[in-house]
Simulated scan of single mutants.
Amino acid sequence: MRHRTVRDVMTTDVVTVRVGTPAKDVAEQLDRHRISGVPVLDEAGHVAGVVTATDLLHKITYQEDGDEWPRFLRRHRVDREKAHGTTANDLMTSPATTIGPDASIVEAATVLESGGVKRLPVVDVVGALVGIVSRADLVKVFTRPDHQIRDEIVTDVVERALLLPPAAITVDVTEGVVTLRGHLERRSEAVLAAALARRVDGVVRVVDELGYLNDDTRYVYA
């Protein structure tokens, strides 16, 4: 069973800026391409950081801010410093959270969720930018056609993993919801079939209607 990787879903035509790019030019790039963030590259072409629309908005938020108390909070101090920045280097969040092209989409989703970011620069082993992956790119996995999901479950789960004939389990897929039906020899086979089906990319939910003759797991679950 092959899980999709970041390489399969990432965008390779990436809009970037350099560390010395003026703040106004960064804003123009975001506006022109209708994006909310852009990787910042150093002289070697490595990702030095990321500038987002939020970073630029600090220039408005703190433009006439006369309140002194926020300066005692680190977050506000950083935001104030960005508000006075003139280049991408001043505005960017660094170091950038990145990911490799061969990471699974599950790993990418975990990093995006835990980091609270919308996109990840994708870098190779030497740190050079090779693409970018967003939450929207990962969501595309759930647009896989039902017949592709069904074929993968039959081939990779039923035949290869369980070593059963295709007809041993009836696999129905409707809008990503997988229903498994059949009567297997052992309960462990039924449990494994459902577990593996859930791991197939694009599966929304698995409805397990599998039966079995022998419960070979009763000692495990006792």
Results as ranks from 00 to 15, higher is better:
73 L>H: 10
38 V>D: 01
152 E>L: 07
66 G>T: 11
210 L>Y: 05
68 E>D: 15
90 D>W: 10
92 M>G: 00
200 V>H: 03
5 T>K: 10
114 S>A: 14
40 V>L: 06
195 A>R: 15
117 V>W: 02
55 D>L: 03
161 A>L: 02
142 F>N: 14
86 T>M: 14
63 Q>K: 09
171 V>S: 01
129 L>W: 02
135 R>K: 13
107 E>V: 02
74 R>H: 12
40 V>P: 03
149 I>T: 03
215 D>V: 12
80 R>H: 11
150 R>C: 06
106 V>Q: 13
124 D>E: 08
137 D>L: 01
5 T>M: 08
5 T>I: 04
143 T>Y: 09
81 E>Y: 09
10 M>K: 02
15 V>H: 01
62 Y>K: 05
209 E>K: 13
194 A>K: 12
186 R>Q: 13
71 R>Y: 13
175 E>T: 13
50 V>L: 00
74 R>V: 13
177 V>S: 09
50 V>S: 00
18 R>L: 10
176 G>L: 03
25 D>I: 07
94 S>R: 09
110 T>G: 05
24 K>S: 15
64 E>Y: 09
79 D>A: 15
189 E>K: 04
210 L>M: 05
188 S>L: 04
211 G>Q: 10
23 A>C: 06
104 S>N: 07
11 T>P: 00
214 N>T: 13
32 R>P: 02
111 V>A: 04
72 F>T: 08
106 V>G: 08
156 D>S: 13
87 T>R: 14
167 A>N: 14
188 S>R: 07
188 S>C: 09
182 G>S: 13
22 P>Q: 05
76 H>W: 05
162 L>V: 08
153 I>P: 00
51 V>A: 07
45 G>F: 07
160 R>H: 15
130 V>G: 02
56 L>P: 01
159 E>N: 08
192 L>D: 12
125 V>S: 13
148 Q>H: 11
90 D>G: 10
154 V>N: 08
75 R>D: 12
194 A>V: 07
210 L>N: 01
53 A>M: 11
185 E>H: 10
178 V>K: 03
67 D>K: 13
14 V>L: 03
117 V>F: 08
193 A>Y: 04
127 G>N: 08
122 V>R: 02
3 H>A: 06
171 V>G: 04
118 K>P: 03
103 A>M: 09
15 V>Y: 00
56 L>M: 04
200 V>L: 04
149 I>M: 03
12 T>G: 03
87 T>M: 11
166 P>H: 14
136 A>K: 15
11 T>S: 11
72 F>A: 14
69 W>A: 12
128 A>Q: 09
75 R>K: 15
90 D>E: 09
105 I>N: 03
181 R>M: 08
103 A>Y: 06
162 L>I: 11
104 S>Q: 14
166 P>Q: 12
138 L>T: 06
211 G>T: 14
177 V>K: 07
157 V>F: 01
159 E>G: 04
117 V>L: 06
175 E>D: 15
70 P>Y: 11
205 R>E: 14
149 I>C: 07
76 H>E: 15
85 G>T: 04
71 R>F: 09
130 V>P: 02
18 R>S: 13
166 P>I: 06
207 V>R: 11
41 L>C: 05
